[in-house]
Amino acid sequence: MAAYLVSVLNGLAMGSLLFAIALGLSLVFGMMDVLNLAHGAIYLAGAYLAVALLPGDDVGMGTFVLAVLAAAAVGAILGGVLAGLTRATPGHLDQALLTLGVSLVVAELLSVAFGEEVHAIAAPAPFDGGVPVLGETYPAYRLLVIGFGAVLAVAVYLLIERSRFGSLIRATVADRAMVSALGINTGLVLTGVFAAGAALAAAGGVLAGPILGAQPGLDEKVLLLALVVVVIGGLGSVRGALLGAVLIGQVQALGTSLLPEYASFLIFVAMALVLLLRPAGLLPPRTAVRT
């Protein structure tokens, strides 16, 4: 029983991180039709920023929060630059090559700066210990990450469903040309979403640090997971990104505890099933009414 609970909690923690990372990828694809293959590299930049800013095993909560904010700022700048570059580059293939190129350059620069070894990042005090959960000791930091995921989900829900900017985002996903015909500079909306999504990915790199660490190649793994989340949830859908992230988190955690050798394979089985049964994803966004 306790083992299952630990697995569910692990899945929720992973799901929270995946939601933060996949959200930007999904919205940028839904709104701009741009598949940002540099999204994983932005995540990795955040993780290495944590390595640089949070050395040693003794990390205070204040320093940790500052590192998250610094990563978000760096991510926002990278996202803004990528938004500009992709807008100047029409065509899916060209955009994919462009963002892949940026991704490779960023990952290589990070490798040069931080080396090929695996870096561990300490969880901030007072979340660096364990707490008893049904007789087992569970890492307190992962509960913090689950809490962060819940707060992020509520905040994003309020922003997207209840604010004017949120209705602009939903309208732009549905029919971008019509939004611009109402006098709204959709380029600014898109750049804002691109920057915010990249900020979340980089902040996710810091937050995931105490769990996944930082190492070369992590960008590709994270990008692949985020892509699976986006495909399962539905391109451009916030609710879909949340559902997909929680699902993939659970599939991965359950797979790791029950069928360790097939764990990574199970995620793609889940994606294949969704694609077979609901090709548009589990919760695709509603598009414009065209009668």
């Binding site: 611009s180 109402l182 065209r290």
Partner: peptide
Amino acid sequence: AAHTVARSGVAIVPQGRRVFAPL
């Protein structure tokens, strides 16, 4: 750009209406 034209005082009721479905 369309948003510049719109701000100059042109509005469109497009073919197929193109109401924002999720809003």
